[in-house]
Simulated assay, not measured.
Amino acid sequence: MEQMNVPAWRKSSRCGTSTCVEVAKVEDQYLIRDSKNPEATALSFTKDEWDAFVEGVTAGEFRF
Rank of each mutant, 00 (worst) to 15 (best):
E55A: 15
G60A: 03
L31M: 12
K25P: 01
D51N: 15
S12L: 09
K47W: 00
L43G: 12
T41W: 01
Q3V: 07
C20E: 07
G16L: 06
G16M: 10
A42Q: 04
K47D: 13
K47T: 12
E55F: 04
K36S: 12
T58N: 07
R14P: 00
K36I: 08
C20R: 07
Q3C: 06
S13E: 12
A40G: 02
K25T: 14
V54C: 12
V57K: 05
N37F: 06
A59I: 08
S13V: 07
A8H: 11
S44N: 05
K47M: 07
G60E: 07
E55H: 11
E2T: 09
D34V: 08
C15K: 04
S12T: 05
E61I: 01
C15H: 09
W9K: 08
A24C: 04
V6T: 11
R63C: 01
G16T: 07
L43T: 02
F64N: 10
W9N: 08
P7I: 03
F53M: 13
K25E: 10
A52K: 13
C15R: 05
A8L: 08
F62E: 02
A24Q: 11
P38Q: 09
R14G: 08
V21A: 10
I32L: 14
K11P: 07
D48L: 10
E55P: 00
F45G: 07
V21W: 05
A8D: 12
Y30L: 10
A59W: 02
V57D: 06
G16I: 10
K11E: 14
A42N: 04
S35A: 08
F64W: 01
R10H: 15
L43D: 01
P7F: 03
E55D: 14
D48C: 00
E22S: 09
A42G: 03
V57Q: 03
E39G: 14
L31W: 05
T19M: 03
L43P: 00
F62G: 00
A8N: 13
T17E: 15
E27Q: 15
R33C: 10
V6N: 05
R63Q: 13
V54L: 14
S18Q: 11
N37W: 11
M4Q: 13
F45T: 13
F62W: 13
S18N: 15
A24V: 06
A24S: 10
E61A: 09
G16E: 08
S13L: 12
R33W: 12
F64L: 09
V23A: 14
A24T: 05
V57Y: 04
A24Y: 06
M1C: 03
S18F: 13
F64C: 00
S35W: 08
E2H: 09
R63N: 14
V54I: 14
V57W: 00
Q29F: 01
T58F: 00
V23H: 03
A52R: 13
A42C: 05
Q29C: 01
E49Q: 15
W9Y: 10
S12M: 06
F45M: 14
K25N: 15
E61Y: 09
E49F: 00
A40N: 15
P7R: 02
E49K: 05
V23I: 15
D48S: 12
L31Q: 09
K11L: 07
L31I: 06
G56H: 05
W50T: 03
D28G: 09
I32G: 01
S18K: 11
E22R: 04
V6F: 05
A52I: 00
